[in-house]
Simulated assay, not measured.
Amino acid sequence: MDNERLLRDLGLTKYESSAYSTLIKEGVTGAQELSRISGIPVGKIYEVLSNLNNMGLVEFQRSRPRKYRAIKPEVALDNLYTRKEENTKSELESFKLKISELKDSFSDSNYPDHTEIKFWSTLIGEEDIVKSIKNTLDETENETLHVKSMKVKEVMESKSKRHKDFNPDILLPLVTDEFIRAAKSGISIKMLLPADFFVNHLKEKYNQIPDTDIKKMIKENLEVRILECDYDFVVIDDNVVYIPIPDPLNPDGLLGEMKMIDKEYAEKLRRKYEELWARGKRTVLE
């Protein structure tokens, strides 16, 4: 195995890798001799050895001329790992600080009041659907309202209508995890569903949580009611709406979904949701 290549993979330069590998073979060596054996230019050798010393890979004798020795690999590589770990922590802290500064900066900007419409292509697999739900919940600051139509119930209950790319038995536990995660973070979630297929998974996950404080928070933030209706939309906070778009070539499928940023329309859908919510049958987690 090419040790010098592996050292370069760990972040050493070509010259640094060559110098360390040569010192491992030759033992205590002077800079001039090391330059001759390794082929590293004399003008570069002292800088290379200084870098290796700073990394904890090489030590030197204070003699005339100065002699260099490679630190044992098992010790030297641990030194390299520790140095990398410390640098990474420092970089992450700096990155985190910049993220915080940007959040504060962007929070001072006014969110656009104008209407904006975006279109997403069809979500066909478990991973796509879960990712879409996760993004929707991550976008929510305070409250999200979901209502699903009878078509969802038909798809869940009829194997002949199920999409070939997703299995409800796989999808529902993943979706449940995302809603529980959001509820634990303090997001208020209301869901109107045509059947109790989601509630059963939710109860199972809920009862597996040992922390009573977390269970209390989930119970306060996540409400599900059962109502058979033809409505299908999502309202996020006071200005964002998601609406599914049917596929004209496949009545049981979706062409995609539309995202609208429109306070006026979101308010209309919110009022409709409140009407539907009042008609829904309550469910309990315990």
Rank of each mutant, 00 (worst) to 15 (best):
A19V: 03
S94G: 12
I214L: 14
P168E: 01
R69F: 05
N207H: 01
E86C: 09
E93N: 15
Y242D: 06
E116S: 11
S107R: 13
N200A: 11
I124S: 12
S21K: 08
G43F: 06
K98Q: 10
Y111D: 01
E139H: 09
M55A: 12
L227D: 01
S90A: 11
S38E: 15
N239A: 09
S38G: 13
I214R: 13
I129L: 10
M258N: 05
V152E: 09
G253D: 10
P210Y: 08
L102M: 15
S17G: 12
F119Y: 09
N79R: 04
K268Q: 02
R5Y: 02
R181P: 12
N51L: 05
R5M: 06
V75Y: 13
S94R: 14
G56K: 10
D138G: 10
N250W: 10
N110E: 15
R64M: 04
D165Y: 13
N221I: 06
R5W: 07
F198G: 13
I236W: 04
E86G: 11
Y68Q: 01
F233E: 01
Y231C: 00
K25S: 06
K161P: 06
F60Q: 05
S121Y: 03
D196I: 04
I187D: 08
N54E: 14
T115C: 00
R83S: 12
S109Y: 09
D196M: 09
L172S: 03
K14C: 07
S38W: 11
V240Q: 04
L80Y: 01
E264P: 03
D232V: 04
E4T: 12
E157K: 15
S105C: 01
E101I: 07
D252R: 02
S121N: 02
S149I: 03
